[in-house]
Design a protein around this nucleic acid. Structure first.
Lengths: 146, 146
DNA sequence: TATTGTTATACTCTATAACTATA
DNA sequence: TATAGTTATAGAGTATAACAATA
């Protein structure tokens, strides 16, 4: 099989395309996709997310999350709040402005993403999504003590 | 739809997983996936590939290809040869050692890739590959004068 | 005038190690 | 002793701009 049909190569190129398209869509809101992913997650959370949990879900090193939260904090989109349960932990919560920006950003990003996936029908996009979800295997083991 | 189901996010995570797995597989041969992709392409080519064509197929900037070919050249895996047709163009061709290394590297990389895609059946992997190919749209316009 | 390869530069992303404060 | 957050650093990847040789 020719190299250009290699599934890893195709995945890498496709991912790059989607990231570039999303970054372009988010530029108007002053965001990049990694910052946006943190903002989106904390906007979906009820009481805020610890940086450790953000790192796990996003597949990033905790030290990277620090920088991303710093960016969002500086932009006034999120805040760090002390966790009532554990004084080591900081819960990242969105500000009102953060929620508003997230909503606009989501619309723009989704529109561009749909565009970038225009070669596929809606059903095919759904198939692709399901297959990717199984490759990634986000089944985070429930956090019970071992 | 929760952010973790976003197709762009899933693609990015999946791509990262595959790249890491492939890089780990290639480490024994002293290669990384980007260098390997150049080596694989020139090994498949009859008379060698120009750096411009490599850049187009790989979706890279020509200046990045210079560095990758430099790496492979330094390792004795490829050579730059003058094109008989155009003195600006250099054709990148594999050395005998380059071909041998490429063969071993391909085996290792493919094995690891299959492993990383273990959650999917062979048929599902093929479906995924076909969908990705359409997203990427490698249909390079035939190089006829406009 | 346009294209191929090249150099240079800057920024983003990824990967580790080590430190602090808490548990 | 282990975990959450943080700082620091280095390397890899991405993105542009400009230049020489050639078409």
């Amino acid at each position: 099989m020719p190299f250009v049909d290699n599934i890893g190569f195709l995945m890498s190129r496709a991912s790059g395309q989607l990231v570039r398209a999303t970054n372009a869509a988010l530029a108007d809101e002053g965001l990049r996709v990694r910052q946006y992913s943190v903002l989106a997650l904390v906007c979906e959370s009820a009481q805020g997310e610890s940086q450790r949990d953000l790192a796990e879900v996003l597949g990033l090193d905790p030290s990277q999350v620090v920088a991303l939260v710093d960016d969002l904090d500086r932009a006034g989109l999120v805040e760090r709040r002390p966790s009532p349960a554990d004084r080591r932990t900081k819960l990242v919560v969105p500000t009102d402005r953060g929620r508003a920006v997230r909503e606009r950003a989501a619309e723009r990003a989704d529109a561009r993403l749909t565009d970038a996936l225009g070669a596929l029908t809606a059903a095919e996009q759904e198939t692709l999504r399901a297959l990717l979800a199984r490759v990634v295997d986000l089944d985070v083991t429930p956090r019970v003590s071992p």
